[in-house]
């Protein structure tokens, strides 16, 4: 039972993470391959602040704000270039973040990581706190979901979709494309920061090894598998990916073959990503496109 709660919490956190990436990748067509950096920035900020004695709720808010600001700081230079180059810039940004976490030992303890990240005072430690933490995560996920749905249904969201299809048309309609993109990245990063902080306070230990390209691939897979530019797609994708990852643990695999499991799982994730793009580009849920609207 506790295990099911654990998987649900993970899936909900990844849903928030995927929804935040979907805002950028699905709606605005911004190919952010470094989204994990904002997840990590959120996790590190709230871990450091709460370990220094700040109430966890305050640390979480600071983490969201910090991730959002970091997103803005990345967006301004990275948005000078388009498409492929934006992908490179964000990928490199995530690697830079990881490198800084590894090397600034005085702050992050380097590869040792930060242990003992507290939960909010009103949530019990250990497994007793799981149901309450699940409710907290579910409320956060529902809030993020409704917020993004509202946002993408607004004129702002429609402008983003126009930018995705053709920037010049958006410009011709008098939209400030750069500003809209910056707003999108700041929002997406702050929400990724929220996912990161929920994750850090749940797992209670973080290290630079948690924020690698693997996590980037996972979250991109959640979005692409579920369906880019849809409300439920990333949530569905996150649940599918997390449940698949956890189900693998129950396969009766002989001990001597254990070393093959993780690489094989990685091959499957990468392979699915390629296959979806080739055979099912819209994912499990296709984006509803109104003709003539």
């Amino acid at each position: 039972m506790d295990y099911i709660l654990h998987v649900l919490i993970l899936a909900l956190i990844y849903s928030i993470f995927a929804v935040s990436l979907n805002l950028e990748l699905g709606y605005a067509g911004l190919y952010n391959f470094g989204h994990v950096a904002f997840f990590g920035i959120g996790a590190y900020i709230s871990a450091l602040l709460s370990r220094a004695g700040m109430p966890v709720e305050g640390a979480m808010l600071c983490a969201m704000a910090g991730a959002g600001i970091a997103g803005g700081l990345l967006a301004v230079p990275a948005l000078r270039v388009t498409e492929d180059y934006f992908g490179i810039a964000t990928l490199v940004f995530a690697e830079m973040f990881r490198l800084v976490c590894l090397n600034e030992r005085w702050l992050t303890k380097g590869p040792m990581g930060l242990p003992g990240i507290p939960r909010p005072a009103w949530i019990a430690r250990g497994v007793d706190g799981l149901p309450v933490y699940l409710i907290l995560t579910a409320l956060a996920a529902a809030g993020v979901f409704l917020f993004v749905r509202r946002l993408t249904g607004s004129p702002f969201g429609r402008a983003l979709r126009v930018i995705r299809e053709d920037e010049h048309i958006a410009q011709a309609f008098g939209k400030n494309v750069l500003l809209l993109k910056i707003k999108t990245i700041v929002t997406g990063s702050a929400l990724a920061g929220l996912a990161g902080t929920l994750w850090a306070h749940y797992i209670s230990y973080i290290s630079p090894a948690d924020f690698t390209l693997t996590e980037t691939i996972l979250v991109v897979l959640c979005v692409v598998l579920g369906g880019r530019g849809t409300h439920w797609g990333p949530v569905l994708g996150a649940f599918a990916v997390i449940f698949f990852g956890e189900a693998v643990r129950f396969l009766p695999i002989p001990h001597e073959l254990h070393r093959y499991v993780a690489p094989l799982q990685g091959m499957v994730y990468g392979g699915i990503l390629v296959l979806i793009v080739l055979k099912m580009p819209s994912g499990m849920i296709a984006e509803h496109r109104r003709n003539g609207a």
Binding site: G87, V224, A262, G270, G271, I272
Partner: peptide, 14 residues
């Protein structure tokens, strides 16, 4: 881009 990033992950894990 998505295909190539997925492919790279697959090849690395191979």
């Amino acid at each position: 881009l998505i295909a190539s990033i997925g492919l790279s992950y697959m090849l690395r894990n191979a």
